[in-house]
C-alpha cells in the first residue's frame, strides 16, 4: 500500500475531531473522504499533509513513518477549500511557485507551467491577476498549482464547494479526466455524495471523527452500513422493525426475510426497488401528500399506515390528495440495517 493511516486520533480542546481512524490508499487510486461538515475529514487531510500534528497513530508513506517529515518535504499537493491563491502573484507565478521551490531552472519551470495550465484549460490566462478571475477559473489555477510539482499524493479539500451547480458538474468531469489521465494518486474530501460517487474508486464515510464505512461507490449505495450512511447518501425511507424468525414486523406489515437473529432493527425501503402499480408481489396503498417536479424525474411523498415514504419516478403520477398503489418484492426492496 502507498499510504497507510493507522489508528490516527486528534482532539481540539477535549473535542475528538478524528477518532482512531485507519485506512489505506494504493498507487493511482482516487479515494473520497465523504461526510457532513465538521466530521473531521479536513483535519484528517491536514494531518496527512503535515499541517496538523496527530495526537496518536501512524501515517506511513511507502512504508516510511511521516511523523518527523516537515510539510514542505513531503511532496504532497494540497488544494485548499477556497483555493488560497497567492493574491500578490499572477496565474503563472502561482502555478510556478512549487517548481521554484524545487529549484528547477527557468526553462523547466516555463515548460511545466505551460503544460499544466493547458491541462486545466487556461492557456491564455498566464499573466492574469488571480484576483480578477471567476470562481471556476480560480479553481483551475489552484488545481494547476497543486499539480505542477507532480505531487506523489494529491489532496483536494472540498475543491468544488463554492461553485454553482452547472459549473460544478462540468468541472467534476474535467477533474476526473485530468486525474485519470495523469494516474494521480488522490485523496478527495467532500460533503457531496454526488461528487464522491462520480469521481472515486473508493469512498470512506466519516461521521463525528469516526469512519463509518469504506467501500466502492456501488457497495456503499447497495449496502449502506448504517442509518447514518443511508440518510447521507439520500436514502430516507427507514422504518422501525422487529425480527421474529424469518419475518420482520413493521408498521407497513410483516415481510419474509432471510434468516437473521431476532431483535429490534432498522429497515431501509429502497425507493429504486419500488414500482407504481401492482406488478410485484407485495402491495401497498397510500395518499399522495406532496409532489415536486425535478426535471428528469418527479418526487412524491406518500402517507401509508401513518408513515411518510419518499419515491421518485419517471412516470406520470397521481396528484396531491389522490390515492396511489405501489408494489415491491420484499427480498429486494427491504434491507435490514444495524441500529446506530
Amino acid at each position: 500500500m502507498t499510504l497507510i493511516v493507522s489508528e490516527l486520533s486528534k482532539s481540539f480542546e477535549d473535542k475528538k475531531a478524528v477518532n482512531n481512524v485507519s485506512f489505506e490508499l494504493s498507487q493511482g487510486e482516487i479515494v473520497a473522504l465523504l461526510g457532513p461538515s465538521g466530521c473531521g475529514k479536513s483535519t484528517l487531510l491536514n494531518m496527512i499533509a503535515g499541517l496538523e500534528k496527530a495526537d496518536a497513530g501512524i501515517i506511513k508513506w511507502h512504508g516510511n513513518d511521516l511523523a518527523d517529515i516537515e510539510v514542505h518535504k513531503r511532496n504532497f499537493g494540497l488544494m485548499f477549500q477556497d483555493f488560497a491563491l497567492f493574491p500578490h502573484k499572477n496565474v503563472f507565478h502561482n502555478v510556478a511557485f512549487g517548481l521554484k521551490m524545487q529549484d528547477k531552472n527557468e526553462i523547466e519551470i516555463k515548460t511545466r507551467v505551460r503544460e499544466v495550465i493547458n491541462l486545466v484549460g487556461l492557456s491564455d490566462f498566464e499573466t492574469r491577476d488571480v484576483n480578477s478571475l471567476s470562481g471556476g477559473e480560480q479553481q483551475r489555477v489552484a488545481l494547476a498549482r497543486a499539480l505542477a510539482p507532480k505531487p506523489e499524493l494529491l489532496m483536494l479539500d472540498e475543491p468544488l464547494g463554492s461553485l454553482d451547480r452547472a459549473l460544478r458538474q462540468r468541472l467534476l468531469e474535467e477533474l476526473k479526466s485530468i486525474l485519470r489521465e495523469t494516474q494521480q494518486t488522490t485523496l478527495y474530501v467532500t460533503h457531496d455524495q454526488e461528487e464522491a460517487f462520480a469521481l472515486a474508486d473508493k469512498i470512506i464515510i466519516m461521521d463525528r471523527g469516526n469512519i463509518i464505512q469504506i467501500g466502492s461507490p456501488n457497495q456503499i449505495y447497495r449496502q449502506p452500513a448504517s442509518v447514518f450512511v443511508a440518510n447521507f447518501i439520500g436514502l430516507s425511507n427507514i422504518l422501525d422493525g422487529k425480527i421474529k424468525g424469518s419475518e420482520v414486523e413493521t408498521l407497513l406489515g410483516t415481510f419474509p426475510i432471510q434468516n437473521r437473529s431476532p431483535g429490534d432493527v432498522k429497515v431501509l425501503l429502497r425507493p429504486d426497488r419500488v414500482v407504481i402499480g401492482e406488478s410485484l408481489p407485495f402491495k401497498l396503498s397510500g395518499q399522495v401528500i406532496d409532489k415536486s417536479f425535478r426535471g428528469e424525474n418527479t418526487r412524491i411523498r406518500i402517507e401509508s399506515q401513518g408513515l411518510m415514504l419518499d419515491f421518485s419516478s419517471f412516470e406520470d403520477l397521481p396528484n396531491v390528495g389522490e390515492q396511489i398503489q405501489i408494489s415491491l418484492d420484499p427480498f429486494e426492496a427491504f434491507q435490514i440495517m444495524r441500529k446506530d
Partner: peptide, 23 residues
Amino acid sequence: LDPKLTQAAQTLGANRWQSWWGV
C-alpha cells in the same frame, strides 16, 4: 491574514524562510 496562504506555500515545498519571504 489567511494562514492557509502560508500553508499552501509549505505544501508546495517552501520551507519556513521561503514561505516567510515569498508569501
